[in-house]
Amino acid sequence: MDIFLAAGSSLFLLIGSFLCLSGGLGLLRFPDFYTRMHAVGVTETLATAMILIGLMLQSPDALVLLKLMVILIMTLFISPTASHALAHAALQNNLVPKLNKQNDNEEVTPSNP
């Protein structure tokens, strides 16, 4: 039983680390602010969840498990709010996203008050 828990935990931690590194690569590589936000979104949803689930499988008692769940739920509720606030502030202050050139038939030009 223990060996399965340890193996599962290692697997989740490995997937989480890979997703984290991918998000970091995206943060370095993508061309503008809005696309970089999507890369950060990867590290804040699934990568965090995977690493925390990997830790949950190793937790010594129930209290630690519950605390890890609190951290996970908190991160999942907080991150969309923070990224919405950030994107809204950026668009409000004239930061125009770089858009794909082929599909400008229905793109929306941001209106600035």
Binding site: S22, G23, R29, Y34, V42, L46, P97, K98, N100, E107
Partner: peptide, 26 residues
């Protein structure tokens, strides 16, 4: 949905900048 879209975004991160098509829409 979150798992599926994560896989999609990670795939496009590794494919590079040519494969993405940023779009703004209502």
């Amino acid at each position: 949905e979150i798992i599926l879209s994560n896989i999609l975004v990670v795939k496009h991160i590794w494919l590079g900048n040519q494969s993405i098509s940023p779009t703004l829409s209502t």
